[in-house]
């Protein structure tokens, strides 16, 4: 069951990586990076369910808390502030 769900997540990651390689403006590529980190959070929780260890959920927790800071910094740079 987890195998089919991870195949669907892999297809979604393929679309997002294609947008990140092709995107005409820098904003497109930053949106792609944001989505890659979000999809990775879901994938890490599912892999923690597969390995069946409670410790592994902490990595996804750190991703959920900290992954938006890099995107926020890049957005502030595009605005001209920082």
């Amino acid at each position: 069951m987890i195998l089919y769900i991870l195949i669907v997540l892999g297809l979604a990651t393929f679309f997002v990586v294609h947008r990140g390689l092709k995107g005409p403006t820098p904003s497109d590529r930053i949106v792609a990076l944001d989505n890659i980190t979000t999809i990775t959070t879901a994938g890490l929780v599912l892999l923690g369910l597969y390995f069946d260890r409670y410790i592994y959920i902490d990595v996804a927790l750190i991703y959920g808390v900290l992954s938006f800071i890099g995107v926020l910094t890049l957005a502030r740079y595009l605005e001209g502030g920082l």
């Binding site: 980190t37 260890r53 410790i55 592994y56 902490d58 990595v59 750190i62 991703y63 900290l66 992954s67 800071i69 890099g70 910094t73 890049l74 740079y77 920082l82």
Partner: peptide, 21 residues
């Protein structure tokens, strides 16, 4: 998982911030 946790905290947030500065 401990190395993955450190890499997530440093590589996604702090490394991007110092490069942008």
């Amino acid at each position: 998982p401990d190395v993955a946790l450190t890499e997530a905290a440093i590589g996604v947030a702090l490394s991007t911030i110092i490069f942008v500065i």
